[in-house]
Design a protein around this nucleic acid. Structure first.
Lengths: 154, 154
DNA sequence: CTCGGCATGTAAGTGGTTACATGATTCG
DNA sequence: CGAATCATGTAACCACTTACATGCCGAG
């Protein structure tokens, strides 16, 4: 993939649980090549800009699988703004606090809807290879369950 | 409170949904004074270190309440390492992926237990003033519901 | 001819952590 | 005596975002 492709893939496929900016992607791709974890190839096609297409090396695959097997370390430090505001809910008018929660409810309802669309795609299409599909569905299920819990909480 | 007190309060009371380091707290307290949102007072008690005790001004309270009323803007950019690893679960041995999930289950089970203890404290003690208690319980309930959802997902 | 998509990159800045420096006191 | 707690602060560093610079192409 090119760096641009990586960004698109990130946004469309794993966008609900991961993100990365160009400022991160481009320097890191270069670094991966320097470390022998990937190779680059310049692609020139008529009628489109030049692309730097990266491919993972065997060593890169090895390192990736090693990382995938490692226990999850970097738990995101908690910063839940809505809960913080709610914690001090006693000092502002009731209807404003209720408004904050109502807004969140709307957001999560919309989220659940898009999750439904993603589910339909995953189930009916032959998008992913069959080996990966159950895992993709598992990440989706996580989103659905926690979103439903948030909804009940609202 | 002193900066030290703020850190302790953060950790013990809202630690499950917010954090702040000393490197943030001390400079910001000073800044608050410069902006007229707080005042400082040096407290010297025999047999203990000098403390800088901060107090919020009327203007500070006003600003706080304004912020509390504002809609939540800064959603944490998603970075869910477990889901990302699971997404690529097809490329590593099954038992390793299952181990990652089992580990998460244990963590969340422990979390639910501590939530239970916090609930008991909130219900039986006269810890908080009565006006704040329902809001504190609401933040707790959020943690409990999403933790239970995560558990079911595991 | 402009806008949006494709494509790469960097520089400046931000937001935050970590580690360290300092020092008093209390408790085992 | 050493360790833990109370207490304040800073400097170095890191991870990351934002905004910008550049340019090509096709569609409207």
């Amino acid at each position: 993939m090119s760096g641009y492709d990586v960004k698109c893939a990130l946004e469309t496929i794993v966008g609900h649980f991961w993100h990365e900016s160009f400022g991160q992607i481009y320097p890191i791709l270069r670094q991966l090549v320097a470390e022998g974890l990937a190779t680059v190839d310049t692609e020139r096609a008529a009628g489109r800009p030049e692309r730097l297409v990266y491919a993972v090396t065997p060593h890169g695959t090895e390192e990736l699988n090693r990382w995938l097997s490692e226990p999850v370390e970097h738990h995101q430090r908690p910063r839940h703004e809505l809960l913080l505001k709610l914690f001090f809910g006693a000092s502002i008018p009731r209807d404003i606090t209720l408004g904050l929660v109502a807004r969140r409810r709307q957001e999560v309802e919309a989220l659940l809807e898009t999750y439904g669309e993603i589910e339909a795609e995953l189930l009916h299409d032959s998008v992913a290879d069959d080996a990966a599909r159950p895992f993709w569905l598992a990440t989706l299920r996580y989103g659905q369950l926690t979103a439903q819990a948030t909804l009940r909480w609202c």
